[in-house]
Design a protein around this nucleic acid. Structure first.
Lengths: 265, 265
DNA sequence: GCGCTCTTTCCGTCTGATGGAAAGACTGGC
DNA sequence: GCCAGTCTTTCCATCAGACGGAAAGAGCGC
């Protein structure tokens, strides 16, 4: 009697199992061995082994020289077809102009659920490298780009976010009434600010990017607190935001943000 | 008798079927309706319907307002974990420097099978937008970046590629012996050129990017043929290629290129 | 209203997914 | 060199759930 087959097979579909292999990969895990994948995705090794082999055959994963697995070139290319890329392509030249004009790091973000999804981040070669690469998520209530997106998001979203604002630094504003006033001011002036509300020592300015159908993204400039006059960035920021909006009239965005909530970083 | 079930179920695995849905998306097809997906992937509609729903649940696809499907934010984020992104991140500031220094469009490409995979492309805001966005593929024998990668690729690869070089323009060099001499010269001088060999009216310069373990990528500058002195770009190009190599010593690249051949564009 | 295409649901059939076990491959300790 | 531990790969008996034709529903143009 070779095996007393205990039969497990829970109620999950074959496909969802295969896709759960991808759960093993995230920001902190660009590579994984078979057994790591099995552990992280909750699958038996034998099953993980079979599924991983199929994903490799489809080039969604690829195998490294040392036998571990990583995201494959096909996945990268498919990811480039997603809406954020269209936006990124339209915005990139103007982001460069803005980096040159201000010498600071710039951010382009879209609304994604209750967070801001960073679509692109550009810095000069001598600027301090920042956190928040493309694909990262920022909170809406305490970052400049987040506030812009929140100010132009629905009332429903604002309620949801402003109800329990997380505190990140001593300067994070957590009073819903005060935040509501900030949002009104942003809609009024078109300009959002954050001074150390998310990261100590970092202040930021942001503006909405208006496409043909309203606000589609937020453009921000980040600078160390020590920077003397961030206000000098206002004009180039305004120009860049407008230019991006214009160059998007043809580039159909689709739904840049599809709701659903990964945890806000 | 409700259904005379003809039984089809070919020999394909459930997972490969699910993944074949992704075949419906490529450069020319950022969006697709259910029946387009079914047609393009060769699946019965009912099956496609079920699979697409699962992929949406996993956020690898998402549904647009008008009912069609597109690549989802999750796929985009997973794609960002692939090796090209690591390289891109390391290179980006230096690509910007190079754009500023030369005023021309720059390219970063890695070897992928028998083609060059464009990892990033940067242009000034006033430069003519070029073809070949990230994710695009270039031929190895008639582009500057391609020649660099080919010159440092294995002899086996060179044989394979130089055996039947495709002609793109009247200036494309298709004589294997002459191409071999070009590659030797490139290994010697470190500099590759292409003058209208791939696209009429476009000339280019490229250099290898050397990481800790040899040549990992090629960096190129593209310019319209009318540009008076592209040679002025040589110094900044050399500096940028070196800088990228240095900033990669820590950023582990893994296998940037995993072989396998999609058709070279 | 009619015909066409596209989307969604239903359900009877039986294929191929599943995972425990065991063998094989490495690695490191001593 | 040998043993212990971890990771990878293969095998296969069992039955869960994938499959897709058909039919109903939803739009749309004429």
């Amino acid at each position: 009697m070779p095996s007393p087959p205990v039969r497990t097979a829970p109620g999950r579909s074959a496909t969802s199992r295969a896709l759960s292999v991808l759960d093993a990969f995230d920001d902190g895990h660009h590579r994984a061995t078979l057994s790591q994948i099995a552990r992280r995705s909750g699958l038996p090794v034998a099953t993980a082994h079979r599924l991983v082999a199929e994903l490799c055959a489809a080039r969604l994963l690829s195998r490294t020289r040392d036998g571990s697995y990583e995201i494959g070139a096909r996945m990268w290319r498919l990811g480039l077809l997603a809406p954020p890329t269209t936006l990124r392509e339209a915005a990139l030249p103007h982001l460069q102009d803005l980096v040159i004009a201000t010498g600071q790091t710039v951010h382009l973000a879209v609304l994604d659920g209750t967070g801001a999804l960073v679509v692109e981040r550009l810095a000069g070669s001598r600027t301090q490298p920042t956190r928040h690469s493309p694909g990262g998520r920022l909170p809406l209530h305490c970052t400049a780009v987040g506030k812009v997106l929140l100010a132009h998001g629905g009332a429903e979203l604002q309620e949801q976010v402003l109800n329990a604002p997380t505190r990140f630094t001593p300067w994070t504003v957590t009073d819903p009434a005060q935040l509501h006033r900030q949002l009104a001011a942003i809609r009024d002036s078109g300009l959002a600010r954050s001074a150390q509300e998310h990261r100590k020592g970092v202040s930021a300015l942001a503006r909405a990017v208006r496409g043909p159908s309203g606000v589609v993204a937020a453009l921000g400039v980040l600078a160390p607190l020590t920077t003397p006059r961030l206000d000098g960035a206002i004009n180039p920021l305004t120009a860049a935001a407008a230019a991006i909006g214009v160059s998007m009239t043809d580039a159909d965005l689709g739904e840049v943000a599809d709701l659903g909530s990964s945890p806000t970083v």
